[in-house]
């Protein structure tokens, strides 16, 4: 692992990596065992320092990361691209960042830090979502009569995680409407990962 890579990884951990650094790390992480080990170590340290609970997510990181890289490559050059470049940049960075957060959590939990009850609550249906992940600190706040944790997002990665949680929570309600108002009939329900009664 090069010094440059170590710097990129460090920037990534601090939530300060730019798109190029993200790409550099993600391209390498599949092949470079040392880089992977360092990433695990960084996350373990961060988890200890921040006393962050880590939910156990069984997600294949390297495959997820490869997908994240594969996507921007397929867009090619088209007439809208020049116009939309800044937007596209944001989109790519955000989708990659989400993968990194999940990966980080998994790596940390592999390292022996067990998921706590609080983390289970966090992954559930709290009125205001909570992520104990990269750059996020959890605070307690009262929400009506219930006392629920509230997210204090410190970085863009925390927001990506929030967006992912909102998708899980609201997808079915959106599908109800889409199924009545778009041409594909009931198909929008197939876009919902987990249908609930």
């Amino acid at each position: 692992m090069t010094e440059r890579m170590r710097e990129s990884l460090s920037a990534l951990m601090d939530g300060e990596a730019d798109e190029l650094e993200l790409e550099r790390v993600l391209k390498q992480i599949g092949e470079d065992g040392e880089l992977r080990a360092t990433w695990v170590r960084y996350h373990a340290v961060q988890a200890v320092i921040g006393k962050q609970a880590v939910p156990d997510l069984s997600i294949d990181i390297s495959a997820g990361v490869r997908d994240a890289i594969a996507q921007p490559a397929t867009t090619g050059s088209r007439r809208w691209q020049g116009l939309l470049r800044p937007v596209a940049g944001f989109a790519v960075a955000a989708s990659v960042a989400t993968t990194v957060v999940l990966g980080g959590q998994q790596l940390a939990s592999l390292n022996g830090s067990p998921a706590t009850a609080e983390a289970d609550v966090a992954m559930g249906m709290a009125p205001v979502g909570l992520v104990n992940s990269l750059g996020a600190t959890s605070v307690r706040a009262s929400f009506g009569t219930q006392s629920v944790p509230v997210l204090q997002p410190a970085t863009g990665t925390a927001y990506s995680e929030l967006a992912r949680q909102r998708m899980q929570r609201f997808a079915q309600e959106h599908a109800e409407q889409a199924a009545l108002n778009t041409p594909q009939g009931m198909l929008p329900f197939a876009r919902v990962q987990r249908i609930t009664e």
């Binding site: 944001f90 989109a91 955000a94 989708s95 989400t98 205001v128 605070v139 706040a141 009262s142 929400f143 509230v150 997210l151 204090q152 997002p153 410190a154 863009g156 990665t157 925390a158 927001y159 990506s160 995680e161 929030l162 967006a163 992912r164 909102r166 998708m167 609201f170 997808a171 876009r191 990962q193």
Partner: peptide, 23 residues
């Protein structure tokens, strides 16, 4: 929200479905 959060935005995608969250 019952508390201030740092302003920001994030996205998640699945196929053609986008989730965009903004604080």
């Amino acid at each position: 929200l019952s508390r201030e959060i740092r302003a920001g935005e994030g996205i998640a995608r699945e196929g053609s479905t986008l989730s965009y969250t903004r604080g």
